[in-house]
Design a protein around this nucleic acid. Sequence first.
DNA 1: CACGAGATTCACGATTTCGTGAACATAATG
DNA 2: CATTATGTTCACGAAATCGTGAATCTCGTG
Lengths: 184, 184
Amino acid sequence: MADEQAPDGTRSGRDEEAVLRFVERFASSLADTGWPRMAARVFVALLATDSGALTAAELSDELRISPAAVSGAVRYLTQIDLVSRERDPGTRRDLYRVENDAWQGALSSRDAALSKWAAGLLEGADLLGPRTPAGVRLTESAEFFEFIRREFDTVMERWIAHREDLRTAAEPTPDKADARPSGA
Amino acid sequence: MADEQAPDGTRSGRDEEAVLRFVERFASSLADTGWPRMAARVFVALLATDSGALTAAELSDELRISPAAVSGAVRYLTQIDLVSRERDPGTRRDLYRVENDAWQGALSSRDAALSKWAAGLLEGADLLGPRTPAGVRLTESAEFFEFIRREFDTVMERWIAHREDLRTAAEPTPDKADARPSGA
DNA sequence: CACGAGATTCACGATTTCGTGAACATAATG
DNA sequence: CATTATGTTCACGAAATCGTGAATCTCGTG
C-alpha cells in the first residue's frame, strides 16, 4: 500500500473497505429517514472524499450502480442544492461536488415546505371557523410553523459563528498546513 | 341543518364536504414530505375536529378506510408521540387524541435521529483520519447536528413564550373563557 | 362463563417505487 | 464531419410498500 492515489487524489493509506462500509452504513440511516437510497449513497460517498468531488464514472464504479442511477441520484441532489455540478477542467467529464455548507442548505430548503404547510393550515382554520376549537388548533399550528421558520435564520447565524470558533480552536498553531498530504 | 351533532360533538354548521377536502389536501402535502399516507389522513382528520379525538370507527367511516388501516396509522402516530390513545369512558371503544403540542413533540423526537447521525459521522471521521479534509468535513457535519440539537431546546422555549403572547392577545377581553373549551 | 363489541394481526393482491440496460443526445477532437 | 467519450432518457422488470379482508385476540358485560 505504498503510495497509490485514489481518483480524487485521496491518499490511500486508508482502509478503503472500511470506508465503503461506513458509506453504506451512514447512507442507510439517511435512507431510514426518507432519503432515496441511491441519493444517500452518492451523497455520503462524496462526503467521504478529500476533494469533495467525484465523477459519474467514479461514483458508478465505487458504488456498483449503473450510470443511470448516478444520473438520477445526482439530479435529486442538485435539485435540493446538496450537490453542485461542475466541469472537470481539461476533460469532458462532469464533477459532482458536495458543498461545504451542504447541510445548512438542505435545512434551509425546508423553508418552502414550512410556509406551504402554514398556509394550508390557515386555510383549514378559516374553513372550520377561526374561533372554533379546531380552528384555534389549526391557527396555532400555522403560527408554530411560521415561528420555526423565522427562528431558523437566527439559529443558522449562530451556527456560522460557532463554526468559526470551532475552526480557529482546531488550529493548534498558526503553523504551516500539516494535515495536507498534498498528493496533487 | 338545525342542530345536528357530529360524533365528536362538533356543531355541523360547517361545510363538511369542504372540510373533508381540506383533510385530503393537507394530508397530501404531508405525504409529499414522506409521511405514510394513511397516517397523514388520520392525523389531519383529528386536527380538524373540535374535540381533537375520534374513535377508530369514526375514522374508518370518515376516511373510508378499513379498521386495519386505522390500526396501522394509529400505531405509527402513537409511536412518534403525535397521537395518544385513551379509553372512551363508559364505552369499550378507544379514543385517539391529537396532543395539543403535537408538532413540538414530533420535532423533539427528531433529537434521537440527530444524535445518531452525529455519532455515525464522527465514526466516519475517525476512520478517514480526523485531520484529513474528508475527516474534517465529517467532523464539522457532526458538530452541526449536535449544534442544531442543542439549539432546538432554546427555540422551543421561545415558542412556548411566544404562544402565550399569542393566546393572551387572542382573547378580546379578559372575559369569561369563551374560546377555551379547554382542549384537555 | 358464554357472548359480543371492538381492536389487532397476517397473508394476499394491487399499486408504486426504483434501478437497470439500451437507445439517444451532446459535445469535444482530429 | 466523423469519431469517441460522456451524460441522459425511457421502457421494462424486480422489489418494496401499502391497504384490504378474514381470522384471531382481548376484555367488559349479562
